[in-house]
Design a protein around this nucleic acid. Structure first.
Lengths: 234, 234
DNA sequence: TAATCGCCGATTGTCGACAGTTTAGACTTG
DNA sequence: CAAGTCTAAACTGTCGACAATCGGCGATTA
């Protein structure tokens, strides 16, 4: 656990400066679908709307490009990323590969404190399932998985998870509705935690496979159902 | 049906514009050790040296920050990333996790053409081992592993590999010398390819584990040998 | 009528400038 | 002599401007 941040360490999201704020606003607009996939992001427009100059907007856009939310076309500008069905497969394929490993590592590093955090998060998931707030539900879901990556203790793995999650957030935000039964999703987290507490690598992998595979199929189904994607004008 | 360039797809490396060129020059300077770890990257200095303004330099720096080569300190500037021994462990831990999976996928997607590319690359590795050119050797080594990720067919996985590789290139470039016996490294690639050709997942994983684990121990040893890292002045 | 060419507005890529902050060094003080 | 303080230079964050380029629309032509 670190407290200071000298010139060493992984990129630490600057929430203070303009670039960070612009990036957050842009991300919001994208995952909420206000900037639909395929739509052009006009630098001057965003800048005017946010009351800043184009420089911070450009830098923020490059950030989102690296995150996979925007696509840059030289001399043509930034466009909101469009997802195809096979993007979902790529993301979940990678997620599965990484989270399997993360869960095994998390089991190895598990302490009473971190175990309780995971348990509490599952409770939160159940409570949220009653709220009928899909965005919140997705957020709490990711918080559980992110916790596992944090406990695993590999900062680069955590960053990878965050990047994949931001892409998924966008897709799921665009789908507009969650998987059919939020309670079932909440329930499928339990055996994962149980396996981690038990500490049997094979069982951990099996349950992570089942849980993420479930989400994979579910999201894949919804995406294919909606495809061809609601492409934005202009 | 028009054929205009689609705003769809993964970020497509702009080698044409200034930002891309500045990023490449900066990367070169870093992996070659001309900009030592911990040293400050003064925007105006780089800009003057390359004959451009600060804007493209800033954007390039943000790119390298996302790649993990630079660290940004708000209001204080960019610094060349400093690696600790546990960074090596993080990188190889993630690499192992991803390349295991990539190799299994590659086996599944292997065609006669891609198989020959892998074989040829191993030949190149042996030829390069005689040249006593560490940088070149490292490059050809990565090219083999990158090929596997390419054949696997997951673009995000390939990008992850590239990011990890750029960090490793920097570390290895700073170490200055390669693992003890370049020929042995070249040889340890052979069973990996053999396993992929055979197509047995367990054997693939075992050989990838052995090969990457070997590099992990070797690089880890060298890094710990050199630590505390030669920190740059200013 | 359909396809091509050329022009015009819109947008990006890049630049130089300015204000606020940080850093380094000289100077003071206990 | 060490520690703290103050001042000036250096640097970052942000801005507005300008040239080059792109996309669309109408005119021209076969």
């Amino acid at each position: 656990m670190r407290t200071i941040s000298p010139p060493v360490g992984l990129p630490a999201l600057n929430e203070t400066d303009l670039v960070g704020q612009v990036a957050r606003r842009l991300t919001e607009a994208i995952v909420q679908g206000r900037l639909p996939p395929g739509s052009k992001v006009v630098e001057a427009g965003i800048a005017r709307e946010l009351g800043v100059s184009r420089a911070p907007v450009r830098e923020a856009a490059r950030l989102l490009e690296q995150q996979g939310l925007l696509v840059a076309n030289p001399r043509r500008g930034f466009f909101v990323r469009q997802f195809a069905a096979d993007d979902i497969d790529e993301i979940y394929d990678l997620r599965l590969c990484v989270e399997r490993h993360a869960a095994v590592l998390a089991a190895r590093h598990l302490t009473p404190e971190t175990r309780d955090m995971l348990r509490r998060q599952i409770e939160v998931l159940h409570e949220t399932a009653d709220l009928d707030d899909p965005a919140r539900q997705v957020e709490e879901d990711y918080r559980f998985h992110r916790l596992i990556c944090e406990i695993a203790g590999n900062r680069r793995m955590l960053r990878l998870f965050d990047d994949l999650a931001s892409e998924l957030r966008m897709v799921i935000g665009l789908i507009g509705r969650l998987y059919d039964d939020p309670h079932e999703i909440a329930r499928t987290h339990e055996p994962v935690l149980a396996a981690i507490e038990a500490g049997h690598p094979e069982r951990i992998v099996a349950h992570v496979d089942y849980h993420i595979g479930h989400a994979w199929r579910e999201v894949g189904r919804l995406v294919r159902e909606i495809a061809p994607w609601p492409v934005a004008a202009k």
